[in-house]
Design a binder for these strands. Structure first.
Length: 422
RNA sequence: GUGGGUGUAGCUCAGUUGGUUAGAGCGUCAGAUUGUGGUUCUGAAUGUCGCGGGUUCGAAUCCCGUCACUCACCCCA
């Protein structure tokens, strides 16, 4: 086992071959799908001023209170590693002024939260997210959800389910909290320790407590939407209607809670059974975020890429990178390595994936390396071929080997031919 | 922040009630007549037994601490 010195810090990890190939594919697919909806990428800094987050996410949330990596730069400015993507995006949008109206953007990149790592939860994790800027509009919310489901399916996922709810407006939230608190205080003794604490800190979280006793209490409660204005309930109904019109399945769940303060109206969560306790692969919602003297309205989602990969693995098994048609150069005479490397370079310049072992090992060892690398063709060249001006070209699948001239070699290893052979 | 589980070769793991030179499989490397892979056979290399203390004649094995990994709570994507 490598010493700790060479390990990344807790909850952060290196991503390399072969998983990196899957990461790249996910990103490619996401870019392709999002462009269908008129979204373009934005890359915001990983480091932001602290205020960008504590005002927007809510300064009582755990993320802001205890999970942000924060530090001061040399000028004493309080900075943080971004714990999520939306706040930075709205900061960017606010800076655009009028230009920002109707913006449709997506982002992908690392986020940082200093939580205790567990299955599906890293301290540096990666999110893919999208934001559609604009005033509350049920069609906009439905479109975003449809896009997210489209993307999940394009990634190859099937066994996920979408739950949706509303948080209503800022005024509704006061009424909901007061209403729930009043009802729950009457039966506080039946709640678990955590929920008794939540009564004062975060009443909504009682609704999605996993404790059976608490769930029984919650089941007797009127739905939280009953404390909201009629218009807020109507808004959710509209969203659900439009989504169903798009022939997508959503389940209205009155106990669904989203933690961040900026959410208003529609909120949703997409869960996958193949994960651990952290089963949300994506979530989203409508928000109104105050940035200085502007309020940015929008709707968006974020998906945890590590969790997407876990879900894909649960559905399809471990990712195996596809083999590429590979040519392997075997040097039977180290004195000719100059020539061999030159040939390999020429093939690569023609777009052919070509390998060579430069360690001056035996032909046998080089053949073995070629086999292990999955080479489709092997070119063998040594003193005898050098004299004849030929090359040995071996088909590793059939085992057949021909002695060919340079033009014939180039013809048989034509990229188009290789591509057709797979 | 709280709790459970686990740390032995590159990987997956064995290591019996503490006993001397710590093992297996896979992988790696090298051979099995001249320059030819995937199968087989033979052989070889690689370990501060996570780290630091303690108990003991003797510790991978027991005790304490610490770090890391992991799962769950909490929170959240």
């Amino acid at each position: 086992m490598a010493s700790d010195e060479f390990q990344p810090i807790q909850g952060m990890s290196d991503v390399a071959y072969p998983e990196i190939v899957l990461w790249q594919r996910l990103e490619e697919t996401a870019r392709r799908i999002l462009s269908l909806y008129g979204f373009s990428e934005v890359r915001t800094p990983v480091v932001e001023k602290r205020v960008v987050f504590d005002r927007s996410l809510g300064d009582t949330t755990d993320i802001v209170q205890k999970e942000m990596y924060q530090f001061e730069d040399a000028g004493g400015r309080p900075l943080v590693l971004r714990p999520e993507g939306t706040a930075g995006i709205t900061r960017f949008i606010a800076g655009l002024g009028q230009e920002g109206h109707g913006a449709r953007v997506y982002y992908v990149g690392p986020m940082f939260r200093r939580e205790r790592p567990q299955a599906g939860r890293k301290r540096q994790f990666h999110q893919f997210g999208a934001e559609s800027i604009g005033a509350p509009n049920p069609h906009a919310d439905a479109e975003i959800i449809a896009m997210q489901v489209h993307l999940l399916r394009a990634w190859g996922l099937k066994d996920f389910r979408v739950r949706i709810n509303t948080r209503g407006t800022a005024e509704d939230r006061q009424a909901v909290q007061a209403g729930l608190r009043q009802r729950l205080e009457a039966v506080a003794s039946r709640l678990c320790e955590d929920c008794q604490r939540r009564l004062t800190t975060n009443v909504l979280r009682v609704l999605d407590c996993k404790n059976p006793g608490c769930r029984a209490v919650v089941a007797e409660l009127p739905p939280m939407t009953s404390f909201m204005a009629d218009s807020s309930r109507a808004y959710l109904e509209d969203v659900v209607r439009v989504i169903r019109h798009l022939e997508l399945e959503v389940q209205v769940d009155p106990t669904l809670v989203r933690g961040l303060d900026y959410y208003q109206h529609t909120v949703w969560e997409i869960a996958h059974h193949g994960l651990g306790a952290q089963d949300a692969i994506g979530a989203g919602g409508r928000y109104a975020i105050t940035m200085g003297n502007r309020v940015i309205d929008g709707v968006g989602f974020a998906m945890g890429l590590e969790r997407i990969i876990m879900a894909l693995t649960a559905e399809q098994g471990a990712f195996v990178p596809p083999a590429v048609p590979l040519v392997w150069m075997v040097s039977a005479d180290a004195a000719l390595l100059d020539v061999h490397l030159q040939l390999v370079q020429a093939l690569r310049l023609r777009g052919i994936v070509c390998g060579i072992d430069l360690d001056r090992r035996s032909v046998k060892a080089q053949m073995k390396a070629a086999g292990k690398a999955g080479a489709r063709w092997v070119i063998l060249h040594g003193a005898a071929e050098q004299e004849n001006g030929t090359f040995q070209l071996k088909d590793m699948e059939s085992g057949k080997q021909d002695e060919v001239s340079m033009p014939e070699l180039l013809e048989r290893l034509n990229p188009a031919v290789l591509h057709a052979l797979g």
